[in-house]
């Protein structure tokens, strides 16, 4: 086993997801297959190879720090599930 049910549960918590019992079994089994397949990378010699994180040569893309028009409060709140006045409302955070 590359990944146990308990590890999947822990990672799910980190990713803010929950699963039912049956779903958890199916996922754990499929994830094991996928992680086993990834083992093949261990046969590649990557000594001294610089990791590639982007497809093109990147430079910092600076721009002038100028004030430009942006979305209005109204537009920004238009898609909110529970807007209140000028705010996004969420369930209670503190006891």
């Amino acid at each position: 086993m590359k990944i146990t049910r308990a590890e999947v549960a822990h990672v799910a918590h980190l990713a803010r997801l929950t699963f039912g019992e049956e779903e958890m079994d199916k996922f754990t089994s499929q994830l094991n297959d996928i992680l086993l397949y990834m083992e093949k990378l261990n046969s590649v010699d990557t000594t001294g190879v610089e990791p590639m994180t982007h497809a093109t040569v990147l430079h910092n893309a600076f721009r002038e720090d100028a004030v430009k028009p942006s979305l209005s409060n109204e537009q920004s709140l238009a898609n909110a599930p529970d807007p209140r006045g000028e705010f996004f409302r969420v369930p209670k955070v503190i006891e």
């Binding site: 990834m38 990378l41 261990n42 590649v44 990557t46 190879v49 610089e50 990791p51 590639m52 994180t53």
Partner: peptide, 9 residues
């Protein structure tokens, strides 16, 4: 990290 190295290759 390993995958990003193989990606470079």
């Amino acid at each position: 990290k390993k995958a990003s190295q193989v990606r470079a290759l």
